[in-house]
Simulated assay, not measured.
Amino acid sequence: MKSAIAATTALLLTACAGGLATTESELQHQRWALASINGEPVDAGIGSELIIGEHMAVSGLAGCNRFFGSARLERERLRADPLASTKMACPPDIQQIEAAVLATLGGGAAVEHQQGRLTLTGSDYVLDYRLADED
């Protein structure tokens, strides 16, 4: 009985101290549309997206190039390294979006996941994704 009370207390303290940890299962099998970078809206017409599949396989559209690889989630940080991508030339404004996405995923980012929103905070960029509508 004491162990059950201790476990419940620990769980409640963790929840009050900053929320429960994001798990791989919460991120997998989802398609995320990039909404903003560092608080600046991203044109939805660009179609930048992040898809997290089975076994943390990642793919998507960074800006004008597609990328793929695998990710891992360790201590609330998501890292997808190495990533492979196509190598098409991009207009400068889209290249900036692409560079931010690839740098953040490859360099690792703190993860915040709640209610259809995924925020990845890397060393230089904060990427805010929204759960994409399934067509």
Rank of each mutant, 00 (worst) to 15 (best):
Glu74Lys: 05
Leu83Lys: 04
Leu27Ser: 02
Gly19Asp: 03
Asp133Arg: 15
Gly19Pro: 02
Cys64Asn: 10
Arg72Val: 13
Leu83Asp: 13
Thr119Leu: 13
Ala100Asn: 07
Gly45Ser: 12
Tyr125Phe: 14
Arg117Trp: 00
Thr121Ala: 09
Gly19Arg: 06
Glu49Asn: 15
Gly106Gln: 09
Gln115Glu: 12
Ala10Ser: 07
Ala84Leu: 13
Leu20Val: 11
Ser36Thr: 10
Ser123Gly: 09
Arg75Gln: 15
Thr121Lys: 11
Ala57Gln: 12
Cys16Ala: 14
Gly47Asp: 02
Arg31Thr: 14
Ala35Cys: 06
Pro91Leu: 12
Gly53Gln: 00
Ala4Ser: 11
Ser123Lys: 13
Gly116Trp: 12
Ala6Trp: 10
Leu131Ala: 04
Ala109Thr: 05
Gly116Ser: 08
Ile52Gln: 03
Lys2Glu: 08
Met1Gln: 14
Leu34Val: 05
Met56His: 08
Thr9His: 11
Arg130Met: 03
Leu11Ile: 10
Glu76Thr: 03
Leu50Asp: 06
Asp133Ser: 14
Ser48Cys: 08
Glu40Val: 15
Thr104Ser: 05
Ala44Lys: 06
Ile51Cys: 01
Ile97Trp: 01
Leu73Met: 01
Ala33Ser: 14
Glu40Ser: 15
Asn38Tyr: 01
Arg72Ile: 10
Leu27Val: 06
Glu74Ser: 15
Ile5His: 09
Glu24Pro: 06
Ala84Glu: 04
Leu34His: 07
Asp133Lys: 15
Lys2His: 11
Ala44Arg: 04
Gly47Ala: 02
Asp81Thr: 10
Ala33His: 09
Pro92Ile: 06
Phe67Arg: 02
Ser85Arg: 11
Leu11Arg: 14
Arg77Thr: 07
Thr104Trp: 01
Ile51Val: 15
Ala35Val: 05
Thr23Glu: 01
Pro92Met: 08
His113Glu: 01
Ala15Cys: 03
Ser48Val: 01
Ile37Phe: 03
Leu11Phe: 15
Leu131Thr: 08
Asp93Cys: 10
Tyr129Leu: 02
Gln115Leu: 09
Leu12Ala: 15
Gly106Ala: 14
Ala57Trp: 09
Leu34Lys: 00
Leu105Ala: 04
Ser48Tyr: 00
Glu112Val: 12
Ile94Leu: 07
Asp43Ser: 05
Arg79Ile: 11
Cys64Asp: 05
Ala6Val: 10
Asp93Leu: 14
Leu83Trp: 08
Ser36Asn: 09
Leu11Tyr: 11
Val42Tyr: 00
Glu74His: 13
Tyr129Lys: 12
Val58Asp: 11
Leu78Ile: 00
Thr14Leu: 14
Ser59Pro: 01
Ala21Met: 10
Thr121Tyr: 01
Gly47Gln: 05
Trp32Asp: 01
Ala57Pro: 02
Leu73Val: 01
Glu74Pro: 04
Ser59Lys: 03
Ala84Ser: 14
Thr86Met: 10
Leu120Gln: 02
Gly47Cys: 08
Arg75Thr: 14
Glu40Pro: 06
Ala100Gly: 07
His29Gly: 05
Cys90Arg: 05
Val126Cys: 10
Leu27Trp: 02
Glu54Thr: 12
Phe68Tyr: 12
Val111Tyr: 04
Ala4His: 12
Arg72Ser: 15
Glu49Cys: 13
Ser36Asp: 09
Glu24Ile: 09
Leu127Glu: 03
Ala17Thr: 01
Ser48Gln: 01
Glu26Gln: 13
Asp81Arg: 07
Pro92Thr: 07
Ala21Thr: 11
Glu76Lys: 00
Leu13Glu: 13
Asp128Asn: 11
Ile52Ser: 06
Asn65Leu: 13
Arg117Asp: 08
Trp32Pro: 04
Phe67Cys: 03
